[in-house]
């Protein structure tokens, strides 16, 4: 356990040792801030039932910076260690393979949370400036951020998987981006084939992150997506663990 904590600390520290972390943080805040402002601007003076939080989270604009962050956060996790060869001193220290995989994953998750934490301030600032609440109930905040967390756990595990496959960070980024896009834009299928049968529509609905977000940002909790994301995360991490082990066995 102590070794896991040591590794985890190192992983988080590693993010802040590199300029990429600050660039991502900065750009992410600029873009989300801008989107928040657009959302508020669109609602301003309009007669609408939509709350500010829905306007922010349920907007298609937000999803672009959202999905781009995952490959950026995860692409170096394993690839860099393979490339630099630092995996060798790491794996000859008395640490298990599982501890290494989990520390990398949770390190990325921690950075993901750090990335999103300042966006909570937008709602605080909005409240202070306008004196109005940005949601009808607390459950809307909770739902939105819970889903962000759940989606994050799953997409980061995809990033881990992609990074464990190759020593090339660019390849890792492209693979994870492709997989995440595939999952994310599944709901487009129903737009393209509006006449598709109900079964397909249902499947798409169950898997589509955009649909889930629409529900959760209204404060509607559905256990199905929660189970879906958590089980997919576990499965992907399990795959990552085995690929990571396999690489050493094969070589």
């Amino acid at each position: 356990m102590r070794r896991f904590v040591t590794l985890l600390k190192r992983e988080i520290q590693h993010y802040f040792h590199q300029p990429l972390a600050y660039i991502v943080l900065f750009c992410f805040l600029c873009i989300t801030g801008f989107i928040f402002q657009l959302g508020v601007g669109a609602l301003n003076g309009a007669t609408s039932q939509t709350t500010v939080i829905e306007a922010f989270f349920d907007s298609i604009l937000l999803w672009f910076p959202f999905i781009v962050t995952f490959p950026l956060l995860t692409m170096r996790l394993f690839s860099e260690e393979y490339k630099l060869g630092t995996i060798e001193p790491l794996m000859t220290a008395p640490v298990g393979d599982l501890a290494v995989v989990l520390s990398k994953y949770f390190g990325a998750l921690a950075f993901y949370l750090i990335l999103w934490a300042p966006t909570l301030l937008y709602f605080v600032i909005f409240h202070v400036v306008t004196g109005q609440s940005s949601a009808q109930s607390f459950s809307q905040y909770f739902g939105s951020y819970l889903l962000l967390f759940l989606v994050g756990t799953f997409y980061l595990s995809i990033g881990c998987l992609a990074s464990s496959l190759t020593s090339n960070q660019i390849v890792a980024a492209i693979v994870s981006f492709a997989l995440i896009c595939l999952m994310f834009f599944l709901s487009v299928v129903t737009f393209v084939f509006p006449s598709a049968d109900r079964f397909l529509g249902d499947v798409v609905y169950y898997f589509s992150t955009i649909e889930h977000m629409a529900d959760f940002s209204q404060g509607v909790f559905d256990t199905r997506p929660i189970v879906l994301y958590l089980s997919l995360t576990l499965f992907t991490l399990f795959l990552t663990f085995h690929i990571f082990q396999h690489r050493r066995w094969r070589s």
């Binding site: 590693h14 060869g85 001193p89």
Partner: peptide, 12 residues
């Protein structure tokens, strides 16, 4: 163990 060519993290 000291591996060949001593791979080390550059950022620490």
């Amino acid at each position: 163990y000291m591996p060949e060519n001593v791979p080390l993290p550059q950022d620490m």
